Simulated assay, not measured.
Amino acid sequence: MSYAIIETGGKQYRVEVGRFYDVELLSAEPDSKLTIDKVLLANLDGDISIGQPLVDNATVEVTVLRHFKAKKVIVYKMRPKKKTRRKNGHRQPQTRIMVEAINLSGKAA
Score class of each variant (00 low, 15 high):
78 M>L: 11
31 D>T: 09
94 Q>Y: 09
5 I>M: 05
100 E>Y: 04
100 E>T: 06
56 D>N: 13
64 V>G: 00
93 P>K: 08
25 L>G: 05
22 D>V: 14
44 L>P: 04
107 K>E: 09
70 A>F: 07
25 L>K: 15
42 A>I: 11
39 V>A: 04
67 H>Y: 08
84 T>P: 04
17 V>I: 14
93 P>T: 09
71 K>E: 12
77 K>Q: 10
88 N>F: 12
91 R>G: 12
52 Q>F: 00
22 D>G: 11
48 I>H: 01
47 D>Q: 11
90 H>L: 15
42 A>S: 13
59 T>M: 06
44 L>W: 04
95 T>F: 04
60 V>G: 09
108 A>Y: 04
90 H>S: 14
24 E>L: 14
31 D>R: 10
90 H>G: 10
87 K>G: 10
29 E>K: 08
45 D>S: 07
55 V>A: 02
101 A>F: 04
15 V>D: 01
91 R>K: 14
98 M>C: 01
66 R>D: 12
26 L>E: 08
46 G>K: 00
14 R>N: 14
26 L>W: 01
82 K>C: 07
109 A>D: 07
85 R>F: 09
34 L>H: 01
31 D>M: 08
16 E>L: 01
24 E>K: 12
51 G>S: 10
36 I>S: 06
1 M>W: 05
63 T>P: 01
34 L>G: 03
101 A>W: 06
98 M>A: 11
96 R>Y: 08
71 K>L: 00
70 A>E: 13
7 E>V: 09
67 H>G: 11
5 I>S: 02
44 L>V: 12
108 A>I: 12
99 V>D: 03
53 P>R: 07
66 R>G: 03
45 D>R: 11
4 A>C: 05
35 T>H: 05
44 L>S: 02
8 T>S: 11
49 S>I: 03
64 V>E: 02
60 V>A: 11
44 L>Y: 01
72 K>I: 06
35 T>C: 08
54 L>I: 13
89 G>A: 11
95 T>I: 08
47 D>V: 05
81 K>N: 15
55 V>L: 08
54 L>A: 01
21 Y>L: 10
29 E>N: 09
91 R>D: 10
68 F>L: 09
40 L>D: 07
82 K>G: 06
41 L>K: 07
16 E>V: 09
54 L>Q: 06
12 Q>N: 14
50 I>F: 06
19 R>M: 13
56 D>E: 15
86 R>E: 15
18 G>I: 06
34 L>F: 03
50 I>V: 08
20 F>L: 11
106 G>N: 01
87 K>E: 14
28 A>W: 00
80 P>F: 12
97 I>W: 00
94 Q>I: 15
63 T>L: 12
17 V>E: 09
79 R>A: 09
56 D>R: 12
